[in-house]
Simulated scan of single mutants.
Amino acid sequence: MAHPLQIRAEILDITPLGAYSRVLLRAPGVASRVRPGHFAAVAVGGGDSSMLLRRAFSIHRADPEQETVSLVVAEHGRGTRELLRSRRGDSLDLVAPLGTAFPQPVGALTALFVGGGYGGAPLFPLAEQIVAQGGAVGFILGASTGERLFGVDSARKLTPDVLVTTDDGSSGIKGQVTLPLAEAVKAIGAEAVYSCGPMAMLRAVTGIATAEGVRSFCAVEEAMACGVGVCMSCVLPVVGEDGVSRFVRSCVEGPCFDGTRVRWDDIGTVPADLYGAAAMGVR
Score class of each variant (00 low, 15 high):
83 L>N: 05
83 L>R: 05
83 L>C: 15
86 S>W: 14
86 S>P: 14
87 R>K: 15
88 R>K: 13
88 R>P: 08
88 R>L: 08
89 G>P: 12
90 D>G: 13
91 S>Y: 11
93 D>Q: 15
94 L>C: 08
94 L>R: 04
95 V>K: 08
97 P>I: 07
98 L>W: 00
98 L>T: 00
99 G>E: 01
99 G>L: 02
99 G>F: 00
99 G>I: 00
99 G>K: 02
100 T>A: 09
100 T>E: 05
100 T>D: 03
100 T>V: 06
101 A>H: 03
102 F>Y: 14
103 P>R: 13
103 P>A: 15
103 P>I: 11
103 P>F: 13
104 Q>D: 15
104 Q>G: 08
105 P>Y: 00
105 P>F: 06
105 P>I: 09
105 P>S: 11
106 V>K: 15
106 V>L: 15
107 G>R: 06
107 G>C: 09
108 A>G: 04
109 L>N: 10
109 L>E: 15
110 T>K: 14
111 A>Y: 04
112 L>E: 10
113 F>C: 05
114 V>P: 02
114 V>C: 03
114 V>W: 01
115 G>D: 04
116 G>I: 05
116 G>P: 04
116 G>E: 03
117 G>K: 05
117 G>C: 10
120 G>T: 06
122 P>Y: 01
123 L>I: 02
123 L>W: 01
124 F>E: 01
125 P>M: 04
125 P>A: 06
126 L>M: 10
126 L>S: 02
126 L>T: 02
127 A>K: 02
129 Q>P: 00
129 Q>T: 08
130 I>F: 00
130 I>R: 01
131 V>Y: 00
132 A>M: 08
133 Q>I: 00
134 G>Y: 13
135 G>A: 09
136 A>G: 14
137 V>K: 02
137 V>C: 09
138 G>N: 10
138 G>K: 07
139 F>V: 11
139 F>C: 10
140 I>Y: 12
140 I>V: 15
140 I>K: 13
142 G>T: 14
143 A>N: 07
143 A>L: 12
143 A>S: 10
143 A>T: 10
143 A>E: 09
145 T>Q: 14
146 G>Q: 10
149 L>S: 07
150 F>L: 08
150 F>I: 03
150 F>M: 03
151 G>F: 01
151 G>M: 01
151 G>R: 01
152 V>D: 04
153 D>P: 01
154 S>E: 15
154 S>P: 00
154 S>L: 11
154 S>F: 03
154 S>V: 07
155 A>W: 01
155 A>S: 03
155 A>C: 03
156 R>L: 10
156 R>F: 07
157 K>S: 05
158 L>R: 03
159 T>Q: 05
159 T>C: 04
160 P>T: 07
163 L>N: 03
163 L>R: 11
164 V>P: 11
164 V>L: 12
165 T>S: 09
172 G>F: 13
172 G>Y: 15
173 I>T: 11
173 I>S: 08
174 K>H: 09
175 G>M: 09
175 G>A: 05
176 Q>L: 13
176 Q>A: 12
176 Q>T: 14
177 V>A: 06
